[in-house]
Computed example of a mutant assay.
Amino acid sequence: MKSLQLIFSNPRYFAPAWVFTSLNIWFGTWAIYIPSVKEKLDINKADLGIALFCLSLGVFTVFPIASKIINKMGVGKATWVGVLFCSATAVLPLIAPNYYFLMGALFAFGASNGFLDISMNTLVTEIEKEDKQNFMSATHGFFSLGGVLVGLASFLIPIINSPVIHMGGVAILVLILNFYLRKHYVHIVAAPVEKEAFSLKFFKPLLLLGIIGFLAFAGEGAIVDWSGLYLKEVSMAPEALIGSGFLAFSVAMTLGRFLGDGISARIGSVKIVALGAAIAAVGFILVLTEATLLAIIGFALTGLGFSVIVPELFRIGGNIKGVDSAQGVSFIAGTGYSGFLLGPVILGFIAESISLKYSFYALLGCVLLVLMTTLLLQKRSSR
């Protein structure tokens, strides 16, 4: 909670934290309108999965060049540019007149998201170095807070009755606040970092953690992209409750990230990952009952479970003996982000070829695999 006090007491820390919130507001608002876009363009689940892959492709396309742009521009200015591009591209998927425009719009939106993701994390890292303060975990909690705000705003869907007006209004309001706060970080320049070559030989201990990261991020991404459609088509929830699954997930995720450090200190990193996987598994079981209320509670439990898994994977990866902490964290981030983006695409094909419910059975299987893997890691560490 100390980091929260730091953020709320000083605009130097609140400004970048709000960028994290903003990114999830843009992305989450798009996510709750996925069923509407699918219906508007009359596309099937497999086509939707391909369109979502274009979003993933945009993210991965910008990854190789983002660091060079950030270093040349300055991390503060790069973060502000990322905010501008996200604001401009957020509405494009919702105004798509056809399927091909949708794919191009999602590619642009994904590239903007990927660039801002890298720049804002680099920005927080640089501020931590300059000020000798730790608030990275709390800023990720603010990212989850963005999902909470999106979920609350989803209750306005029947009133606004226009995805374009909703997203346009959100984009403008978020941009205005970022414009006001940008003065607190736009001048910051990242210190040059000497990079080391990646060697798989020294990363064998990380491979298992990378798999866990992929599966955990895939589950998180799937709920962001598919929870609304699941409640609409499987649980037959009323329109006003379609965004409730994402809201419940985001609220629980936010609370878990703000409180997880204290629990981890008491029981250890590996045990809290196992606990998180077990809680997420119970959540998916409730989601699979198809009952709307139980499904919403299930989404909340999955959010609570996933909230503690990802930060602990970074913590474990950064403390493996014989592996540089930066390389360990980077490796897990790469595999995890791949899961977040590719997982929903794979599930889209499962949903189209079998059913959407079976996609969530697959997610339950992934979480159980994470649980078994962490129990194996716990047994090894206790020897």
Rank of each mutant, 00 (worst) to 15 (best):
L304P: 09
I350M: 01
L247C: 10
I354V: 14
L304T: 01
L364N: 04
L293Y: 14
I296N: 09
S144M: 09
V19A: 02
H166P: 04
F109W: 01
L208D: 07
T374M: 13
M73H: 08
E233K: 09
G169A: 08
G147C: 06
R266Y: 12
A333D: 06
F8Q: 10
P97V: 02
P35E: 02
V287T: 14
E126K: 05
V164Q: 13
A17Y: 03
S227Q: 08
K129T: 00
S112M: 07
V62A: 09
N44M: 13
E126C: 09
M103K: 09
P35A: 00
K183G: 07
F115L: 10
S307H: 09
N161W: 06
F85T: 13
I43M: 08
Q133F: 08
L6K: 12
F20S: 08
F360P: 04
G151Q: 04
F360N: 01
S244I: 00
V287D: 12
E233D: 14
T21R: 00
E352H: 15
A295I: 05
L364C: 08
L41N: 01
L371E: 01
M236R: 11
K357Q: 14
L200M: 15
G348I: 07
F214I: 04
E126S: 08
S325W: 00
I279Q: 04
V367L: 13
V282S: 15
V83F: 00
L116N: 10
G213I: 00
V367H: 00
G318T: 00
A171G: 07
S269Y: 07
G256I: 00
V81G: 06
L255A: 05
G151W: 05
S56I: 06
L57A: 15
S9N: 13
L294H: 14
I159M: 15
I127S: 06
L156R: 01
G322C: 10
H187V: 08
A240P: 06
R266T: 12
W26A: 13
G151L: 10
I350F: 02
S264P: 05
S235Y: 03
I223Y: 10
L375Q: 12
S359I: 13
M1S: 15
L209H: 00
I297K: 14
Y33I: 06
I34P: 01
L259A: 06
D117L: 09
A216P: 05
F331G: 00
F340Q: 11
E194C: 05
F179Y: 10
Q327R: 11
A31K: 02
G305Q: 00
A291V: 07
G245F: 11
T373Q: 11
V310F: 13
E39S: 13
V345N: 01
